[in-house]
Nucleic acid binder design. Sequence first.
DNA 1: ATTAGCACTCATTGTATTTGACTGCTAATA
DNA 2: TATTAGCAGTCAAATACAATGAGTGCTAAT
Lengths: 341, 341
Amino acid sequence: MLDERKKKILKEIVDEYIETAEPVSSAIIVEKYENDISSATVRNDMADLEKMGYLEKTHTSSGRVPSAKGYRLYVDELLKYDNISLEEIKYIQEKLESKANGIEELTKIATTTLSEITHYTTVSIGPKTTGQLIEEIKFVLLGNRMLMGIIVTDTGLVRETIIKFDEDINQEQVDTLNYFFNNKLKGEPIEKIDASLEEYIFRELKYSINIIRPIIEQMKKLIQDEEENFYLEGANKSFELPEFKSLELAKNFVNLLDTKELMLDILNTGFAEDIKIYIGDENENEDLKDFSIVTFKHSVGDKDLGTIGIIGPKRMNYSKVISVMKYISKKLNENFNENNK
Amino acid sequence: MLDERKKKILKEIVDEYIETAEPVSSAIIVEKYENDISSATVRNDMADLEKMGYLEKTHTSSGRVPSAKGYRLYVDELLKYDNISLEEIKYIQEKLESKANGIEELTKIATTTLSEITHYTTVSIGPKTTGQLIEEIKFVLLGNRMLMGIIVTDTGLVRETIIKFDEDINQEQVDTLNYFFNNKLKGEPIEKIDASLEEYIFRELKYSINIIRPIIEQMKKLIQDEEENFYLEGANKSFELPEFKSLELAKNFVNLLDTKELMLDILNTGFAEDIKIYIGDENENEDLKDFSIVTFKHSVGDKDLGTIGIIGPKRMNYSKVISVMKYISKKLNENFNENNK
DNA sequence: ATTAGCACTCATTGTATTTGACTGCTAATA
DNA sequence: TATTAGCAGTCAAATACAATGAGTGCTAAT
């Protein structure tokens, strides 16, 4: 049923559509790819491919456009992912080797680089604290009524926050806090920082609640991974694409990027170390039905180091995008192992 | 020449245009605002106002649209800035009283609030370090090859960075660094942290250059005010406006927001404590000719605490925008004085 | 299994026409 | 002198219609 020639033609149609963003006609396929068969033959195959659900028409006498199912087959079976040039490899290496301070910064650099090479809009979120172990906690006195609280985890993640008080706090108290927190929490999973701690410290140290409460509050915020590390690059690049001549779509897209929740949702869904591809209405969300998203989750064991995503039209250049993403993911891993050996 | 009635009619035209985004006809003015004179009279006045440069036509037989000069007069002389409701005042108070940790966070909250109330796109940048005095410098050892460097300034601004080394560093060295830096720099303007410091420390402390260089490098970055604190809120809100039915404009707008440089330029231009209004081609930049920008620079003496801006169509609701901005600026000042008394 | 050929479909483009929301101007009026 | 009624003139926008041509599907021949 789906013989080799049909597969070949399907690939050619998707390739062509990715390039031109116009419905693909049988004549074009013959002209550019299949010089030895007639357009009528191609038309027959196209009709079959449509019956099987791989292609669609925009109206009765139009050329064909890939369906989500068509893209899926294309991405899963018809593509090779080595579409990356020597220059691109060099460029990525250069960018990722720049001494980034901390995993968050590195993720941002990777996100920017991905957008630069692919010319699509990219997004990322930094590492999740979940599952990480506390390696060190430090409180630093700044003035008389301010502390900086710092947590370092076993993956090298560093988070810090400012804590302000309504009454003075002295160095001695801070030393005690440092000893106390490290003693109690070093080596423990980061989730151990929770409300129960407040009571415990109050009982043990007898510090004023005006001191203890702000500390616990802020430290809890610190491990909550809010939208702090959401990062977006190259929104304008998407606007150059022909699909965005429809104002409707353009508006949707801006909304999408602006209401971060949806993007966060998607970036948080993927699983470890794998590149995930969501094509059009494969996304649960209605607003995403005209877009495709490719994500890569960077992690070590069950510890998350951040997720990078690319969002573009359904007819995005999957071959290029995935090739580049694979390479970046490889480099990120190398880089991490290098720094944590 | 520009008698009271003409001023009144000009104001009415701008009001009407701000509301409807359509060229304003003489008939509409009579119907909605001036029941006692005829449309012919209004037409005569409109023709005069056009001759004086306050109004424009989109084509010979169209209604009138305010020119930049018209908006300018409207904003400078015809508007009262008390267009803020009790609910809005309450809402702003509530938002700004939430205990923000640090001036940067407060600026972000103010930016979000401004966007929520006005329904326009808002941007902000955090405080500039320029002119600030160093109150305290701290280095905190994290592990064996990592330091956190922290600077606190006299306005309460706190900045920190991670510094990584290729060789180990011990607590004793860190203590020396702390003593040394504070001794040398406490009370000094923050600009004193520069390249010359590297040589000096090397001479005095004889630490390995592998230790000194990263420290100086990162500390210099810290006071450089890069785009770190650029913050954008409500890009999608602008897209609901009728002027953005022109795809051209929409594209320009996205580009504008995406290439932060231009926004940063503008936010950095204004002067202390004043609300500045840039209407259409009053902006030097060509890309901004269809937009208006209103900025407010928050500062104490010559020390910058951040700038908030709003960007919208030329026919933005100046009355509302400026009223709300005035109130927010007042609150920010109160809040700052409260915290630094 | 492939292909030539033709009828048919339909989005797109171009052209002409109508409509109506405006203005500017003139002459009358208060 | 300031206002107004009234009307001719302008032009964007809407409507209608025909022509174009890029596609397809199907049939009959190879």
